[in-house]
């Protein structure tokens, strides 16, 4: 119990420090939805619903003149005055915060005033963003997480520890992902995740880049061309082995499929920036060893090996 309490306290102190260090502009939302005084309350209601937000600043030209919130809309609705102009229903006393103030000032303002949002102004008085109560702390946590990852990676790299030191001689680390066919929305997540993990292990960044680019192209191939399959990355002290295996439909002519620019991808894929017939070539050029086997009706197996640079030898960062 005691150690847990101490841990929480350390976290809190770090968070406080970070909130003092980060400026409001680093935690605010920049995409600004605003209305003019001429909007009707009905229009505001639509806007709030569409953007799933609870209030918007009211601007006349570039000047901030008020804030209209979901409470104002509700009141107008109850009174049957949805046609009323924002100008007549908004709150004119707006509490704001400056973009260059420490984020902690925003936190204090939320705590003291109980407002649901703070328009953010630059020193010229122009509205440049908006904050909701969860923003400063939520984003501070995310910054903390990113920094922690970077530091951890640096620690590994400084120590010069290899995977061998981490796993012991002869062991390897296997990352295995199920990839769904035609899951375009989730495409690439596996490879990005793999890059994060391999990067955190402090493996040579150039080699990790090549291995995960190969993995990404293989992942895309599974999504575009197959009913799904499995993507694995196996890290050993000397190499990263990327393998993609699927159960069909298989490639009719492998030689042809390896030609740059040859593609059988459907039109919809091309319009999304894929299917240019470069995937297998990219895998090949990233890999130190490359193999492909395919049988129509049975499936395809693609294997790419990226050697990790030995100490003293710089990896070919640019291939």
């Amino acid at each position: 119990m005691r150690s847990r309490g101490a841990g929480t306290r350390t976290q809190l102190t770090k968070l406080e420090e970070l909130l003092r260090e980060l400026r409001v502009e680093e935690v605010m939302t920049r995409r600004l939805v605003s209305v003019s005084g001429d909007f009707t309350m009905a229009q505001v209601k639509e806007l709030l619903r569409k953007h799933r937000i609870s209030g918007v600043p009211v601007l006349e030209g570039e000047a901030l003149v008020g804030v209209v919130s979901i409470e104002d809309v509700t009141r107008a609705l109850e009174q049957g005055e949805m046609g009323a102009k924002v100008r007549d229903r908004m709150s004119r006393e707006v509490i704001t915060v400056f973009a260059d103030e420490p984020a902690v000032e925003a936190v204090k303002r939320f705590a003291h005033t109980k407002v649901g949002r703070l328009p953010v102004l630059d020193r010229g008085g122009k509205v440049v963003g908006i904050l909701t109560p969860g923003d400063p702390v939520g984003r501070a946590f995310r910054v903390m997480d990113l920094r922690y990852r970077e530091q951890e990676q640096q620690r590994w790299q400084q120590k010069g520890l290899g995977l061998e030191d981490l796993l012991g001689e002869g062991a390897s680390l296997v990352l295995r992902f199920r990839v769904q066919g035609e899951d375009f929305a989730g495409a690439g997540k596996a490879s990005v995740q793999a890059k994060r993990v391999l990067g955190r292990l402090g493996l040579d960044p150039g080699a990790v880049r090549r291995a995960t680019i190969a993995a990404y192209e293989a992942e895309m191939n599974l999504i575009i061309h197959t009913r799904g399959g499995e993507l694995t990355l196996e890290a050993t002290p000397h190499s990263v082995v990327v393998e993609a295996v699927d159960k069909g439909p298989g490639i009719v002519d492998v030689e042809q499929a390896l030609q740059p620019g040859f593609s059988t991808a459907p039109e919809w894929v091309c319009e999304m920036g894929f299917g240019a017939g470069m995937g297998l070539n990219n895998i090949q050029s990233c890999a130190d060893e490359f193999e492909i086997e395919s049988e129509v009706g049975r499936g395809t197996r693609v294997r790419a090996v990226v050697h990790l640079s030995q100490s003293g030898r710089k990896d070919r960062l640019n291939r």
Partner: peptide, 25 residues
Amino acid sequence: MSDVLASARPGSLLLTGLTHPQAVR
């Protein structure tokens, strides 16, 4: 995106009209 993976050097800026999450990944 294959073009980006094949030709962009680390540390570069990507300018693109593809706003799909893939561009960021």
